[in-house]
Design a protein around this nucleic acid. Structure first.
Lengths: 336, 336
DNA sequence: GCAGTTCGTGGGAGCGCTCCCACGAACTGT
DNA sequence: ACAGTTCGTGGGAGCGCTCCCACGAACTGC
C-alpha cells in the first residue's frame, strides 16, 4: 500500500490537488457538493496529510513539545509530572496534536540539547515545566521566538505562564495548622531552585506573620522534593520540639511521616502534618494526609489551550494565569 | 534570524548544497579539507537540518513514537511507565532521537487514534508498551509495515519484543516463600488482560507444583495492578488463613500491606509479602519490601536500540529478548 | 601520451504540501 | 447586451532536503 497523497485523493474525487487542500484545511470557496465528494473520498481512503510536508510548506505540524527541565530521576519519583503529562495529552488528543517529550538525565545533557531542541523545527510550540529559577531555556526560547508557555511562574514580562497559587496554598495550609492550635509549626521546603518551593516557603512565612507569630528559622528545613530529603529533614526537626509541620509536597510529607513513625511520634496527636499537591499517595498515607490540592491536570490541559491561543493570536500581551488551590482536610492535621 | 538551510551553509563554505548534505550525512567522497571547512561553518552557525524536509525527502526524521496502550490514569499510578520512559529517553538523547508520546484516556480514544498514529508519517519507528493480550494495535502495525518493538511478550511470530522473564521471576518469588517454610501462599494477580500478569500467575502456579504443593484456587485473588485492587484483594484473603502472599507488583504489594496493617496483621511474622518490580516505593515500604527486580530502564534503552536495529536491518528474523529478574530480599519475607 | 578509470563535486528532480496567481463561468448592473 | 465583478477551481512555484546523474580533474596502465 503506497502512501496516499493529496494528488491521489484529487484524482479519485475528480478535482485538483488545490481543491482537496482547501477542503482539508477548511478553506471557504469550495462548492458544498464538491466538498462532500472530497470528504467522502478522504473518509473511505483514510487519507491523512503528511505532517512533514505540511510543516515544510510553512504550516503547522500539529506537534507540540514538552520540555521537563528536571533530571529525569527526580522527576518521576513524584507523581506530579506524570499527572501533568496526563492533563496535557488529554487536551492534545481531541485536537490531534502529537506530543513530543524532552527529558534530560544530566545537566550537561540538558545544556547540550537545548539549542538542538530550539532549532529542531518540528514542533509548533513548546510547553516547559520544572524550570529552575535561573533556567537557561526560557531566555533562549524568547530569543528565538519559539511560541511557548511555562508551567510555573516567571518574572520575565514576556513569558506566558500558568501556575498554581503556591503562596496562597501554603498560607492556607499553615493557617489551618494555626487555627488548630499548633504552636511550633515547622516547614520542610522543596528544592529552592524552584519557584514553587520558594513560593510555598513564602506562604508559610506570610501565614505565621499574619497571625502574629514569630518565625523561628530553626524550624525551616531545606528539602529537595524527594521523599528521602524530607525523611532526613524530619529527623533533624524531631529534636526541636515541634507540634506541626507543613511539607512542600505530598511525596515529601510521606517521607516526613516515615521518619515520625520510626521515631514513634504519633500523627496527628503529637505532630500534625500538612502536605501539598493532593496526589493519590496522600489518600493512601496512614493516616490519610491533609494537603493542598492543586489542579495539575487542569494546568496541563490549559497549557495546551494557551499555547494554541498564542500560536494563533501572538503572545502579546503575555498570558499569566494563577490557579487557586484548595485545602483538603484529612486526618494528619487532627480534628479541629 | 531567518532559518539556516543547506544552501546557506553551502554558500558560506563555498561549496554546493550536495556537498554539505554529504558532510552532514557522513557520506564518503568528500575531501577532508572541504569536510573540515563545511563542518566548521556548521559549527559556527549552529546549523541543524530540518527534520521535516529530511523526512519528506524520504529519510528518517529521527523521531520515534512511544505508544502506551493503557488508560493514562491507571498508568501513572504505578512508577513502572515513568521508569520505562526514563530508560527510553536515556537512550534517545545521545542519538538525538526525539520521542513522541501517545497516551490515551479512554478505550474509544485509543481506537480512534490508532489509525491516525499509524498513518502519521512522522516517526521512523514505534515502541509500544502495556498492550493487552488482544490489543488491536499490534496487528495494525504489522499490516502497515510500521517498524516497531513491543515491550512485553507477544505470540505473533513477526513481533519484535523485549520482556522480563515474568514466569521465572514469579517462580523465584514463590520458591523463596516456600523455602522460608510458608505453607499457605496466596497470590494477588495483576490485570489479567496483560501478558505480564498472566505470566506472573503462571510462575506462581509452576513454583507451587514444582515443590509438590497443591494449588488452592481460593488463594488466588484477581487484581488489576492498582494499589486499591490489592488492598481489597488482601481484605478478602485475610479470612482465608494465609501466611504469605506473592503480589504481582510493588504498588499492589503496598496496597496489600496497607490492608494487613489495618487488620493488625504483622508483616512478615504472620504474613510474608513479596512484590514484583523493585521500584522505589518498595524500599520505602514499612517494612521494606522483598521483591523481584526487573530491569525496566534497561528494557527501555534496549527497546530503542532494537528499534534502530530493525530500521536499519529489517525485522527478520524477529528479535525476541527475555531479560532475567533478580530476587531482592528485604524484610517483608522475614529472615530465612 | 593517450584512452580509461576513479574521485570529488555540482545541479536537477522530486518528496507532499500550501500559497499565489490566473482563468473561465456565472453572476451583477445599467 | 456588454463590461465589470465575483466565485470556484486548477496549476505553478517553492518549502529544505536527498538522491541520482553528469561532468571535469586527476589519476591509472600500457
Amino acid at each position: 500500500m503506497s502512501r496516499l497523497t493529496l494528488e491521489t485523493i484529487a484524482e479519485l474525487a475528480g478535482v485538483s490537488r488545490s481543491t482537496v487542500s482547501r477542503v482539508v484545511n477548511n478553506h471557504v470557496s469550495v462548492r458544498p457538493e464538491v466538498r462532500e465528494r472530497v470528504l467522502s473520498v478522504i473518509e473511505e481512503t483514510g487519507y491523512q496529510p503528511d505532517p512533514a510536508a505540511r510543516r515544510l510548506a510553512g504550516q503547522r505540524a500539529n506537534i507540540i513539545g514538552l520540555v521537563i527541565a528536571e533530571p529525569a530521576q527526580a522527576l518521576f519519583a513524584d507523581p506530579y509530572f506524570p499527572r501533568l503529562i496526563q492533563g496535557i495529552t488529554q487536551a492534545c488528543n481531541p485536537l490531534e496534536l502529537t506530543l513530543s517529550l524532552f527529558l534530560f538525565h544530566t545537566k550537561e545533557e540538558e545544556a547540550s540539547l537545548y539549542p538542538k531542541i530550539i532549532r529542531n523545527n518540528l514542533f509548533d510550540g513548546l510547553i516547559t515545566a520544572g524550570n529552575h529559577v535561573d533556567d537557561p531555556l526560557v531566555p533562549q526560547l524568547i530569543e528565538n521566538d519559539v511560541p511557548f508557555v511555562a508551567i510555573g511562574r516567571h518574572e520575565h514580562p514576556d513569558v506566558n505562564f500558568l501556575d498554581t497559587d503556591n503562596v496562597a496554598g501554603a498560607h492556607a495550609a499553615v493557617t489551618h495548622l494555626i487555627r488548630l492550635g499548633r504552636q511550633r509549626i515547622a516547614h520542610i521546603t522543596g528544592h529552592l531552585n524552584n519557584r514553587s518551593a520558594q513560593d510555598r516557603q513564602q506562604g508559610y512565612l506570610n501565614a505565621l506573620r499574619d497571625r502574629g507569630r514569630t518565625v523561628d528559622p530553626a524550624l525551616i528545613e531545606i528539602g529537595d522534593y524527594t521523599e528521602a530529603s524530607a525523611y532526613e529533614a524530619m529527623h533533624r526537626l524531631l529534636t526541636k520540639g515541634i507540634d506541626a509541620v507543613f511539607v512542600a509536597s505530598d511525596s515529601m510529607a510521606l517521607g516526613a511521616m516515615r521518619a515520625l513513625r520510626e521515631a514513634n511520634v504519633t500523627v496527628p496527636d503529637e505532630v500534625a502534618v500538612v502536605g501539598f499537591d493532593d496526589l493519590p499517595p496522600a489518600l493512601l498515607a496512614i493516616p490519610p494526609l491533609t494537603t493542598i490540592r492543586q489542579p495539575i491536570r487542569r494546568i496541563g490541559a490549559l497549557a495546551v489551550e494557551t499555547l494554541l491561543d498564542i500560536m494563533d493570536n501572538g503572545s502579546k500581551p503575555a498570558r499569566r494565569v494563577i490557579l487557586p488551590t484548595e485545602l483538603v482536610v484529612r486526618e494528619t492535621s487532627g480534628v479541629g
